[in-house]
Design a protein around this nucleic acid. Sequence first.
DNA 1: CAAAATGATTTATA
DNA 2: TATAAATCATTTTG
Length: 345
Amino acid sequence: MDDQPRLMHSTHGVGMAGHPGLAQHMQDGTGGADGEGRKQDIGDILQQIMTITDQSLDEAQARKHALNCHRMKPALFNVLCEIKEKTVLSIRGAQEEEPPDAQLMRLDNMLLAEGVSGPEKGGGSAAAAAAAAAAGGGGSDNSVEHSDYRAKLSQIRQIYHTELEKYEQACNEFTTHVMNLLREQSRTRPISPKEIERMVGIIHRKFSSIQMQLKQSTCEAVMILRSRFLDARRKRRNFNKQATEILNEYFYSHLSNPYPSEEAKEELGKKCSITVSQVSNWFGNKRIRYKKNIGKFQEEANMYAAKTAATATNVSTHGSQANSPSTPNSAGDSFLCDQPDATST
DNA sequence: CAAAATGATTTATA
DNA sequence: TATAAATCATTTTG
C-alpha cells in the first residue's frame, strides 16, 4: 500500500517538472515587472509538485489543496499542457504491439487439454470418488490408480485457480489504484486518458507475465504427475503365462513372417485379454530380441515347434508323433534382414 | 542385491 | 503409418 505511490513518483513525477525552458517561458508571458519574485514563486510550486509524493499522506493532501488554490495554478497548468503537447509525439512512438505470445498459448492449450483450466467437473474430491465408482467391475486395478491421479490433478487445479484469482484481484486492485492516482494527479498536471490507458496496459502485461509463471509451474506439476501416475512403464505387469504361451505359439509358428495382420492381432488380443497395441508391442519386442540373439531363443523355438507339431498331429492323426522337432531356424526367415553375430553354439 | 527379462515408450526410417 | 532400434522403468530370477 505504501509502495504504489512511490512507483508512480518514479515513473511520472520527475520527467515533466524538470523542463529546462520553463522558467524562461513563464517570464516571457508575464511581462516581467516584478519578474524575479514570480520566478521564485513558480520555482516553489514546481518544487512542491516534485516532492509531493515524498511526503506523508495528510501532508501531501494539504499541500495539494494549497497548490490547487494557488493563484498561479491555472497558468502553470496551461504551460504544462503546452509542454506535454510537444513531447507527446515521443510517447506515441513507443507503442509496441505485442502479438499473442506463442509460449503462453502453448501453456494455455496444455492446461486446457489436461483439464486444469477448463470447467471443473464435480466438486473437488467428489470427482475422484465418482470416477472410482463409475468404473466398477472390469479394470478395477486401473481405475484405483486413475482416481488417485484425478484427486491429485484436482488438487493442482484448485491451487491454480486460487492463485489465478488472487493475481486477477491484485491486478484489478492495483489498476484501479493507479487510475485513481492518475486521475487525481491530472488535476495538477496534464494526463490524457490515452496515457492512463497505456499505463493500464503496462500493468496488465506485468501481471500476465506473472500469470505465465504460474501457468508454467502448473504445467510442470501436471507433467510430473502424469509421469508419476500415467506412464505405463511405471506400473508394468508381466502378461500371464497363458497369454505368453499363445503369443509365443503364434510367433514361432509364423517365424518366417512374424507380422500378424490387424485381424490376427485383434484375435490374439482377445485370446490373451490384452489390447491390440499390447500385441503389437509384444511382437515388436519379440522380433527385435529374437533377431538380436537367435541362439538364446533356440531352446524356446524348439519347444514351441514341438508343441505346435504335437497338437497338429494330435488333431489330425492321434497316433504317430515321431516328427523330430525340426529347428525352424533357417527356414526362410525373410524378416531376418542381416544377421548379427549369433553368439554361442 | 545385481543381472536378466520384459512390457512400454521414444526416435528414426522407409 | 507401421516397424526397427534404442531406451526406460519395472518385475523376476539366481
